[in-house]
Nucleic acid binder design. Structure first.
Length: 472
RNA sequence: GUCCCCAUCGUCUAGUGGCCUAGGACACCGGCCUUUCACGCCGGUAACCGGGGUUCGACUCCCCGUGGGGACGCCA
């Protein structure tokens, strides 16, 4: 093929479910490849399976693509709307003798398949109708007349050269009895007519490729370059599926992952650039190429994704992080109306959060003036002996002029000293009084974020709680 | 079963015949910091699937085995 032609790639999902992480990685590689080479990227929905395709799935896939930032230059095109074109091309093959009508029933075919498997043979169409020159009938399908001898060679951009003996390949169906083209045919016609120069897809398609190459040739099309990316496996090395955990891209959004974390994680599953782990999208566009994609399957490792997510939470611009967090708190009916308050909360929470969801949950106490005490925390720390120091804090806070981390720490240390105890002994009770929990951001950070007024209110509530408990 | 692909720490990977006493990252284990939890910092455990070749020299090249994955649909 002409090497100086502009690169055109595509992602062609079938709308039979959500976008899963494997598909997302394929889309990402296509997107990066075209961007890197200054080409364009097309989205095509392969909906020729009328039974399983749904509009909801299409919508879900588009949403996920957008969330990941994989914007397409053309499309989405819908394959089912192109059936007239496909039929015309099928007709052309029939006319030239490269395809023929077949009336074998699915039942008979299935039987033959089973017995072939049982006898240890490779199941192949036996060519019953190949030379019968049958006319089209309501139940007939169209099969491609594939060469019986010779070798078809694939020069894969990732896997290298792969050869197939043509005798391994049988006469595949290219048009179903319902008049719709099958995948292997439609994909060839569409890729060729849309000018796709590089077909980058999962390596579960390797075995389809020689058939497709034969179709390109029979149709008189230029054969594109292929790059087959290895599969993503679960922890047990089996193909990644729901039983390994979340596989839907949008599920990761809901679990509080940042799109850049998922993108960074997925790109490193199979691709690398020396020892570098963190990549911005711009860097990826600059650095990505198929030559650095590995040949072997990779195990999906949620731990590393979490680490990346944590990294991106730590480095995300504050305003954006606040915007990302809002929906998580609004979902919990919390008041997100005070921008300064939110910014401060987010600043407290972000260094210790793995996901936005976790961040949202751990920050709920900021919004609740009536702090809910965890039972064990209250039992251990809200006891009568801490009423003294907590009372001192509540009473003395108004006079603290330097209400900063430093000033607050000095103030608390002074109270500890006066009470002849150590800061650590009053820190936990104070933490429980302010948050209801034993684990939280730093006391000083919380006090600044909450402000003196709320801190005093919470302390008074805690003192009342201690008193009530003492009476029982 | 047949065909196709793959094979470096538990995981993701660097490595393209001498730079390897095999590097980085996640996870894990210690230590430091400390008002909890994290963050951070410092340190540690841990791998070239096996066997034959080729070569002065193999993680790197070839063959065989083994293991894993994929395909074998009127699904894509």
């Amino acid at each position: 093929m002409n090497e100086d032609r502009k690169v055109v790639t595509r992602f062609a999902p079938s709308p039979t479910g959500y976008l899963h992480v494997g598909g997302a990685r394929t889309a990402l590689f296509n997107w990066l490849f075209s961007r890197h080479h200054g080409g364009s990227f097309i989205l095509r929905i392969e909906d020729t399976d009328q039974l399983r395709s749904t509009d909801e799935s299409t919508r879900a896939i588009l949403d996920a693509m957008e969330w990941l930032g994989l914007v397409w230059d053309e499309g989405p095109y819908f394959q089912a709307q192109r059936v007239q074109i496909h039929r015309k091309m099928v007709e052309r093959l029939v006319e030239t003798g490269r395809a023929y009508h077949c009336t074998c029933t699915p039942e008979i075919l299935e039987e033959k398949r089973k017995s072939a498997l049982a006898e240890g043979r490779k199941p192949k169409y036996d060519g019953t109708c190949r030379d019968k020159r049958l006319p089209r009938t309501p139940d007939s399908v169209v099969r491609f007349r594939s060469p019986e001898v010779g070798v078809t060679t694939l020069d894969d951009l990732i896997k290298g050269t792969i050869s197939f003996n043509n005798e391994e390949l049988d006469d595949l169906v290219i048009e179903r009895s319902d008049g719709f083209p099958t995948y292997n045919f439609a994909v060839v016609v569409d890729d060729a007519q849309m000018g796709i120069t590089h077909v980058i897809r999962g390596d579960d398609h390797v075995n389809n490729t020689p058939r497709q190459i034969q179709l390109y040739e029979a149709l008189g099309y230029e054969v594109p370059r292929f790059g087959h990316v290895p599969m993503i496996l679960g922890a047990d090395k089996a193909r990644l599926s729901k039983r390994h955990g979340a596989t839907s891209v949008m599920a990761y959004k809901e679990m509080g992952y940042l799109p850049e974390a998922l993108v960074n994680y997925l790109v490193r599953l199979g691709w690398s650039h020396g020892d570098q782990e963190i990549f911005s999208l711009d860097e990826l566009v600059d650095l990505f190429d198929l030559g650095a994609v590995g040949k072997s399957a990779a195990v999906f490792n949620p731990e590393k994704l979490i680490w990346l997510n944590q990294h991106y939470i730590k480095t995300c611009p504050e305003d954006r992080l606040v915007d990302l967090m809002k929906p998580f708190w609004q979902e919990r009916d919390l008041d997100t109306g005070d921008p300064a308050f939110l910014r401060s909360i987010v600043a407290d929470l972000r260094p210790r959060a793995k996901t936005l969801l976790e961040m949202a949950e751990s920050g709920v106490f900021y919004f609740q003036d009536e702090v809910v005490y965890e039972e064990a925390a209250a039992a251990q720390f809200l006891k009568s002996e801490v009423a003294g120091p907590l009372g001192d804090i509540a009473g003395g806070l108004a006079d603290v002029e330097d209400y900063s981390k430093k000033g607050i720490e000095d103030f608390l240390r002074k109270i500890a000293e006066e009470r002849a105890t150590k800061l650590k002994h009053i820190a936990q009770p104070l933490r429980v009084a302010l948050t209801g929990k034993t684990v939280s951001p730093g006391i000083d950070e919380i006090m600044i974020t909450l402000g003196k007024k709320r801190v005093v209110e919470r302390l008074l509530r805690a003192l009342a709680y201690i008193e009530r408990k003492g009476e029982r």
